[in-house]
Structure formats: C-alpha cells, structure tokens
Design a protein around this nucleic acid. Structure first.
Length: 668
DNA sequence: TCCTCCCTCA
C-alpha cells in the first residue's frame, strides 16, 4: 500500500493552484466518501487553500480516521514546514497518529510542539498525549501528564484508565475508576459515560477476581448503560475471559443492536475457547442474518477457527475471500493463513502463502517454523529459522518454542541442545517451561534419562505436568521403574484428574513383571474415580465437519463404517498385522478391557473418509488426543491396502501415512 | 472540524 501513496504535499509540484473561497470542509467531506487517500491528497493539493489551518486540520483528521497515520503525520509535517500555526484541533489528530504508529519519538516531538504553542493544559491535547504514552508503554509519562492536569474531564480519566488496562494493569485501572467516581461525587456531577464504563469492564476482564464482572455488570445496568453497543461488546469479551462463554453468548443474543465488533467478539470468544465449530456457526449467522460486513479481523479469527477444526475447505474459501477483498497484504491475516494451512495439513500451501507476503513479522516466521515442526520437517523448520535470523527478524520466546518443538518431533537432540543454550546466551531470552519440556523430551527419548532428570532438578522454574509427563513417557519407553515412580507421583499431585499417568505407571510396572504394583495403580485410579477423557476425531467432507467418538453409535453411517472396518481387518491380518494389545491385556478387568477395545475414533474417521471419497484422494483426520499405538500401526497398513495417503493430526503433531509407513518414523 | 472504549495472527 505504501508505494501507492502520493508524496506529502510539500513538494514543488504540489503548490496550490486554486484558492478556495467556499468552506473547504463541505467539499472535502463529499469527496472523502468515495475517494481513496491518493485522490484525496491530490484533490487537496489542487483545490485547497494551503494557507488555511482549518483545511490542514481536516486533512490530518481524515487521514488519521481512515487509518492512514503515516500520511497524517506527513501532512502535519508539511503544514509545519509552511510555517503555519497549528491550533488546538491540529494536535490531537497528529498525536493520535503517533500513537497508532507506536511512534514514541514523533509523539514526544509533537508533545514538545504542543507545549511550544501553549496547549499544555488543553484537555483534548492532554487526553491524546496520555493515550499516546500509554500505547507506547510509557505509562509513567502518561500518569505524569494526568497528574499535572488539574481540571479533568471524563475523556482524560478514561484515557488514563484505558492506559492501565492496555498495559495489563487491571487493578490500577479499577482503583482509578473508583477515584473518578469519588471526584464525580465530590463535584456533584455524573460525568461517567459509556466509554468510561467500557474501560471499566475491560479492566475487570484483566483482574482475576471472581464475581467482579458480574458486580460491575450490575452497576452498569443500574446506571443505564447496559443498552450501549460498546458496553455489550465489552461484556461479551469480559465474561469469556473467565470461561463463562455461555454468559457471553447470552449477552450477545440479548443485544438489540449488533455491529461488526459484536460479531467479531462473539466469533473470537468461541474460537479462543476451543469451540471452533460454534465460531464458524456465528460467522455464518453474520453473513446470512445480518447486514454487518465482515472485515480483516473477522477473517483472521475465522481462519484460526478453521485451523483448530482442520477445516481445509472452509479455510480455502476464506483465503479466496481474503484475496477478493485485497486483504492479503495484511500481516495478521497473512499469518492466520499460514497457520491455517499448516494445521490443515498443507505446509506447502503455507509456504506459498508465506513467500507471497510482502510484510512478515516475527509471528509470520514463527507460524511457518511451527508448521514445519508439527509435520516432523525439522530441517525445513530450521532452514526457515536461519533465514529469519539472516533477515534480521529477532526470534522471541515462542519462536524458540517452535524451533525446539521441531527438533523434539524429529529427535534432533544436538540441534535442540544448541538452540536451547543459544537462546539465553545469544538472544537474551530465559528458557521457560515449554523449552525445558522439549529438551527433557529429547533427552528422555534418546534414553538419557538421568541427564533429563538432572536438568529438571536444576530448572529455575517449577517443573509442570508437561515436563514430568515427558519424563514419565520416556521411562515407559526405556523401562525405568525408579524414575517412572518419581515422575508419576509428582504428576498425581500436579494433574490429579488425569488418569493417563496411572495407566502409564501401571504399564511400567507390568512390563517389569511387578504385577502387584501394576494392579495397585489400577485400584488407586479407580478409587479416585478417574476416567479417561473421551477421544474424538474430526473429518471434513464437502465442507462439513464430521465428528466421531470412541465406539461411536451416533453417526448416521456408523453401521456401514463398522462393516467396512470388518472388511478391512480381514485384509489387515492377511498382510501381517498383529493386534497390539499389550497394555490392554495385562491386568485390566473385563469391563475396562471392553471400554479400551471399543473402536477408537481415529479408525472410524479414517474408514469414513475412505468410504466417502474418490479412490486416491488423501484422507485427513484430526484427533483430540494422541494417536494410540495400535491405531498408528493399523493406519499404516490401511494406507498400503487402499493405496491412499492418510494424514492424521493428533494433539501433538501430524502423521503422514503412505505406503505402509508414517512420516513420524514411529517416533512420537 | 479536535480527545477516550469494545473485536484479529505465532
């Protein structure tokens, strides 16, 4: 977009040709409605009296409003070069543009100029400055200005309160709001407005205090602000921040008027809370039942819902829409597209989308690295990472999570170690739980259990269930009872409702021939009333997502699917498949055995996919848990028997099954 | 004509 812009109107060719006598504002607004900034600037250059401060104000304001902050600042600079004296309306827009660009330097310069022209106590100017300093993370400067302004209006208060919220200091924001109320009280005024209330509610969403949002909601109703659009929008978000997604939906449904923010908020709430199907449903509602047009924010949220669901077809449609709307140069949208293709199993499409991006930020690079990593393509992931560094983009915490995860998925211990050390030595980043988790995983799988354990003991942060979980899993592979016990008992404390650890430890005992201990774990697990979370798998067919549960009897085609699986299993035995039920057969009681033997969702989903697609088509399945080892073996055989590529995304990574083998190399 | 809020990506 930048190269499309006209140069600022301070060049020789842009000298005024015509001095308008009529009100520039009136002409101006009729033109802006249908013109781009490019036309707008040339129009301005040709027809507006450039010695008129009011005209300049209009131009700066309009550019700032349309989001073209850079151009607004250029216009401001041009105006200053003409030695025109800015008035009190000039500064707020200029400052707002600095704040939108997070350009602290220009912000400070503009601040100085405002002082120079004597606007130090102007509320409009001060509010804009407080906002600018807060957005640029200079909260103390913002607060200083706030404190130095004796006559405060609601906008000034709101700017400061919002400043705290934006800097993640919800508590301070709440306290300041309280002060605001006290001031109102003292002056016998009611100046609190709906915008102030919106800031208050967004502060609530950042304070982990139970019942706070409800209480403030009550206050909002009492004050009569509950019908306000912005208030409703914020409530949708605030309730969801505490997991009360149902309440969010209720607020949303109860809103008489809904704008783009309302729809976007509701879609985002569902998408961010793992309810991707619901998110897509709301998006459908937005298109079909409202007159509200979606924008880039909507589409990036929808893309992330598609990524979660693995809904490739829907994702592709959204991608098409992005292209149609000319939003492909938007970094956030572009990054969402990369992530969507990666998580829908199409890394090569992700790479294509990545290559075509004009502007890439650290998240775009990280998305692609993570994408290659989850497909087991560690070499490619590292290659992208090196390119990123060469390009001069600074990797962050998450980038290193992606790099190390890529190494971990491919078993690249040496590279993993190197980058784990480099992150603190060269990049000044402290390793967090995720990074330790990857290294523990790498060491553990390589059989270097005592090193892994030493690392865990030396960690500066308290190891969590993921860390001990990797260690426990490694103990199972390498048959280490002692360390397995230590890890498992940590896990019983850290993640008490997860029964997987009991099963793992029980299996470790069983494999060591310690049947009594194995039995003891089973009993303990039972006495604590723990059950496995139900596994389910998703398959997208003709744009619809089908869900399968373990031992599913609900799906309309379930009978046919079971018949087909019967057919397949006969063929499987012919080609040499031996059912792997080692862990099932050991020492479970009958009832449990039956449960375990219920057909896993991934098998159902794969069968369904094959039955309903043309020969040769790739089957793609998404599972909420990790693929079990028996299913993994079976699917390998199936890929050979039916001569299909089968892609399974489980909770940890992708498996590409082809010709009887899997891309993970049985290492996952 | 000017200021403050709510929704997006790894």
């Amino acid at each position: 977009m930048n190269e499309m812009r006209t140069p600022p109107p301070n060049t020789a060719s842009l000298l005024p040709r015509y001095h308008s006598k009529s009100s520039p504002r009136r002409c101006y607004s009729t033109i802006t409605a249908s013109t781009t900034n490019r036309n707008l600037n040339s129009w301005f250059t040709n027809y507006v009296d450039k010695t008129n401060v009011f005209s300049w104000n209009s131009v700066i304001a309009d550019l700032a409003r349309s989001g073209d902050s850079l151009e607004a600042l250029r216009a401001f600079a041009s105006m200053r070069k003409l030695a025109l004296k800015p008035n009190r309306s000039t500064f707020p827009c200029a400052i707002k543009s600095c704040s939108a660009l997070l350009d602290l330097l220009s912000g400070k310069q503009t601040h100085l100029q405002a002082l120079l022209f004597g606007f130090h106590s102007d509320l409009f100017v001060s509010s804009a400055l407080i906002d600018m300093y807060a957005k640029c993370r200079h909260l103390t400067d913002a607060r200083k200005l706030f404190d130095e302004t004796p006559q405060r209006n609601v906008v000034l208060w709101t700017s400061m309160i919002t400043g705290y919220v934006q800097n993640n200091n919800g508590l301070e924001a709440l306290l300041l709001f309280k002060e605001f109320l006290i001031q109102d009280d003292r002056l016998g005024e009611v100046s609190v407005d709906s915008v102030a209330v919106v800031s208050l509610l967004s502060a609530c969403a950042r304070v982990p205090q139970k019942g706070l949002t409800e209480a403030v909601h009550g206050f909002v109703i009492k004050k009569g602000f509950d019908g306000e659009l912005g208030v409703g929008n914020t409530l949708v978000d605030a309730y969801a921040k505490f997991g009360a997604v149902g309440v969010s939906k209720k607020v949303f449904d109860g809103m008489v008027e809904k704008d783009r923010v309302s729809w976007n908020s509701m879609i985002a709430v569902f998408a961010q809370n793992g309810l991707a199907a619901e998110a897509l449903e709301v998006f459908r509602g937005m298109i079909e039942e409202s007159d509200v047009k979606y924008n880039s924010m909507t589409l990036s949220t929808v893309l992330s819902a598609c990524a979660h669901l693995g809904a490739l077809r829907v994702g592709k449609c959204v991608h098409d829409q992005v292209l149609k709307m000319g939003l492909e140069d938007n970094v956030i949208v572009g990054t969402s597209i990369i992530d969507m293709y990666c998580k829908c199993g199409r890394v090569e499409m992700a790479k294509k989308a990545f290559d075509s991006m004009k502007e890439k930020n650290v998240r775009s690079w990280t998305a692609l690295i993570a994408g290659y990593g989850m497909h087991g393509l560690a070499k490619e992931a590292l290659e992208v990472f090196y390119n990123m560094i060469r390009t001069g983009v600074k990797p962050n915490y998450i980038t290193f999570v992606s790099v190390l995860a890529a190494c971990s998925h491919a078993g690249l211990l040496e590279e993993g170690w190197h980058w784990f050390n480099a992150m603190s030595n060269q990049f000044n980043l402290d390793p967090g739980l995720e990074h330790y988790g990857c290294i523990v995983d790498l060491l553990g799988r390589a059989g270097r259990l005592s090193e892994a354990y030493d690392l865990v003991m030396k960690m500066k942060i308290r190891p969590d269930f993921v860390i001990w979980g990797s260690l426990l899993a490694a103990c199972r592979i390498h048959k280490n009872v002692e360390l397995g016990e230590i890890s498992a008992w940590k896990l019983f404390d850290l993640d008490p409702t997860n029964c997987g650890y009991y099963v793992l430890l029980s299996n470790i005992y069983a494999e060591a021939g310690r049947w009594k201990d194995a039995e003891r774990m089973r009993i303990l697990m039972k006495s604590r009333g723990l059950v496995k979370p139900p596994g389910f798998s998703l398959v997208e067919l003709k744009g619809r997502v089908h869900t399968f549960l373990v031992g599913d009897q609900e799906h309309p085609q379930h009978q046919k699917i079971y018949e087909y699986l019967e057919e397949l299993s006969a063929k499987l035995l012919e080609v040499g498949y031996v059912p792997n039920m080692a862990s099932v057969l050991h020492d479970v009681d009958e009832e449990e055995k039956e449960i375990t033997l219920r057909v896993h969702s991934e098998k159902l989903a794969v069968a369904f996919g094959i039955m309903n697609s043309v020969p040769g088509a790739t089957i793609q399945v998404i599972k909420n848990l990790r693929v079990c080892s028996d299913c993994h073996t079976v699917i390998k055989f199936i890929s050979r028997i039916v001569n299909r590529e089968i892609v399974v995304r489980d909770s940890k990574r992708f498996h590409h099954f082809k010709d009887g083998s899997c891309s993970c190399g049985d290492y996952w």
